[in-house]
Design a protein around this nucleic acid. Sequence first.
DNA 1: GATTCATATTCTTTTAAAGGAATATGAATA
DNA 2: TATTCATATTCCTTTAAAAGAATATGAATC
Lengths: 127, 127
Amino acid sequence: MDLVEIYKCLCDRTRLRLLHVLAQGPVCVCHFQEVLGEPQVKISKHLAYLRARGLVECERQGNWVVYALPSKPSRELKANLACLQDCVQEHPAFKRDLARLKKIEPACAWVRAGEPEKAPGQYRCGC
Amino acid sequence: MDLVEIYKCLCDRTRLRLLHVLAQGPVCVCHFQEVLGEPQVKISKHLAYLRARGLVECERQGNWVVYALPSKPSRELKANLACLQDCVQEHPAFKRDLARLKKIEPACAWVRAGEPEKAPGQYRCGC
DNA sequence: GATTCATATTCTTTTAAAGGAATATGAATA
DNA sequence: TATTCATATTCCTTTAAAAGAATATGAATC
């Protein structure tokens, strides 16, 4: 994984927010929409961008697709993700994302555990 | 200084090399040309890019312009520059730059000390 | 004052990326 | 099997960045 490619992934605010949220654990796309308050296309395309460059992995669980940080991140990626977390701690916008994530935490827990059928709602995954 | 802007500065290989070299101390443009082996326009434009975003500062010394990392870097910048140094240690291309820098070290020392007139050569700054 | 040197800027072409609208895919339900 | 939902992809327009060629600037020398 090339260092420049990592930085290219990091030089967009939406992608920074996605990666920052992902540091908390796996998240499905609809939760991202809820947490970031951004349209589906935008979220999906930025996730695709990150996926194509190995910064995230994903797994389909029925109707949902759950994204996560790579299980075996390179040294460079690990260092930069840690740096990002450090840099962003104070920024209100990023803290707000985490607050919104906490609100939907219960639903997330099911999805993370690979049991989306237990999530509330019918078709929905609880967002 | 915006975090995204910092990452935009970091997502180009030439700029990474410039910043990596600058971590050793102030360097003038002609030394950069020597060390990176890249054409003058390229070096100058990337330095302008970094300068416009506050990632480097510069000072004219007679005919030469000496660039340096900012004297008071933001927390974010400091963290990312440290991370960069860490990530790049093993990469041959970056190590090669430092090796070439060492070769012209004597000339650099004069320039850094603000006494370019002591540098060898007539019009030249020793590159 | 003309020249020489180091550096910066302008101009142009090419390429990548962002964003939105519309549509496609693939799984689950009815 | 038709529908519904979550997500992805395509198409389009706009904007930013990279690179090289040519030229400009500003300081020092002759």
